[in-house]
């Protein structure tokens, strides 16, 4: 038995869709953020898989940039959640609807 590229791709697809389900079924804004991190990581797994199987380091370079953007996104997003919590005392995304008409 040999591990082909499909095994990694299917694991990555599974993790991505678990992340999608997590975004759809959770009401806690922080858990929604964590599901988004899970989706970013599954995309990283795909990039590293192709990079490794093709013997080309550009894919791993892009993983590096994705990690940078994820760090920036987590810092700004959590700051926004803290600011919303200070005003509305909740992290329930159903109750944060001040921009909805």
């Amino acid at each position: 038995m040999i591990i082909t590229i499909e095994y990694y791709l299917i694991l990555s697809a599974f993790m991505f869709l678990v992340g999608v389900t997590g975004v759809l079924i959770n009401r806690n804004a922080i858990v929604v953020f964590m599901s988004i991190e899970l989706m970013l990581n599954s995309a990283n797994l795909t990039l590293v898989t192709f990079s490794s199987f093709l013997g080309n380091s550009i894919g791993q370079l892009f993983v590096f940039f994705v990690m940078t953007v994820a760090a920036a996104e987590a810092a700004v997003g959590l700051a926004i959640i803290i600011a919303i919590f200070r005003n509305k005392l909740t992290v329930n995304i159903d109750e944060i609807n001040i921009l909805k008409w």
């Binding site: 599974f14 993790m15 678990v18 992340g19 389900t21 997590g22 959770n26 964590m34 599901s35 899970l38």
Partner: peptide, 8 residues
Amino acid sequence: AVTAVLMI
């Protein structure tokens, strides 16, 4: 896979 499902 299992920890992803447990996480959500």
